[in-house]
Amino acid sequence: MFAWFIRHLQTLVGSLGELSRNPFSTILSVSVIAIALALPGGLFAALENINKFTDEFEHGAKISLFLSPEININEAKSLQTKLLNHQSIKHIELITPEQAMEEFKSRSGLEDALNSLTKNPLPVVLLAFPEEETARSPAKLADLINELGKLEQVELSQFDLEWIKRLTALLELITRAVWVIAFILGLGVFLVIGNTIRLAITNHQEEIRIIKLIGGTDAFIRRSFLYSGMLQGLIGGLIAILIIFILFSIISTPTSSLSSMYGITFNLDPLQFLPSLVLICSGALTGWLSARVTVGVYLRQFEPGKSNI
C-alpha cells in the first residue's frame, strides 16, 4: 500500500515536472480552462446573489386582509390570534383604523379634509407575513391568499402576485441557461485537455513504445497522463475561482452604492466555499475523464500490428 502510494506520488510529481517543462502550451491550455470554468462559476455566483435579493424581498412579502367594516378591534384581535396558528403564516400585524388614518393623513397631505370627517371610514387591516416556504412558491401563496379571502370577517385579501411569478419564472430560465452554458463550456474544457494530452502522447511516442515493449501495462502508461489532465483541470479551476473573486470585488462597491440609492442594503457575495469546491472538483474530474478517454483512444496505435519497431 505504501509502495503504491509512493508510486502515485512520484507520477504526480512527474506530471507536474512535465507540465512545467512545456510552460507555453501549459499556460495557454490552463488559461482557456480557467476562463471556461470562470464563466459559469461567475454566472452561478451572480444568480446566487439575485436569489438572495429576491429572498430578502420575499421575507417582506405580506398579504393585506381588509376586514369587513362591522368587525371591531376585539374581534380583529381574536382573528389575529387564530390566524397565528395557521401553519403557513409566520407573523401577523394588526393596523387599527386610527393608525391607518394617521398614516393616510401624513402621506396624502389631505389632513384638513380628512379631519373634517366625523366617522373614520377605514376598516381594520391585518398584515399576514407568510412562512418562507409559502412565500417562495407562487402557487402556495395564491392558495393562502384565496383561503384567507374566504374568511367571513375578511372583505378583501390582496397581494400583487404577478411580478413574483414573472421573476421566479425568469430566474428559473436563467438558471437553466447557466447550466446549459456550464455544460457546453465543460465540454470545451474536456476537448482542450484532451488536445494537450494528445500532444503529450505524440511527444512521448517513443517512451510509450519502449515501456510497452518491456511489459508496461496501459494502466501504467495512462497514469501519468491522468495526473497531467487532472492537474490541468485543478489548476484551471483554482484560477477560475481567483478570476471570479477579482471580478466580484471590482463590482462589489458600485453595486452596494447603487442599491443604497434605492434605499436597499445589498452586499455582493463572492462564490461560496461549497460551490467553489464543486467548481475545482469538476475541473479536476473533467481533466481526469478527458485524459482517460484521450489516452484510451491514442494508446490503441501501439497495439500489435500497429507499431514499427
Partner: peptide, 22 residues
C-alpha cells in the same frame, strides 16, 4: 488478449539494434 500482452512480455528480455533507452 490485448490486456495480457504486457504480462507475456515480462517473460521475455528484448535487445534492440538501436538500444531503445530512455
Amino acid at each position: 488478449k490485448r490486456r495480457n500482452i504486457p504480462y507475456f512480455r515480462r517473460q521475455i528480455g528484448m535487445v534492440f539494434q538501436d538500444h531503445k533507452l530512455l
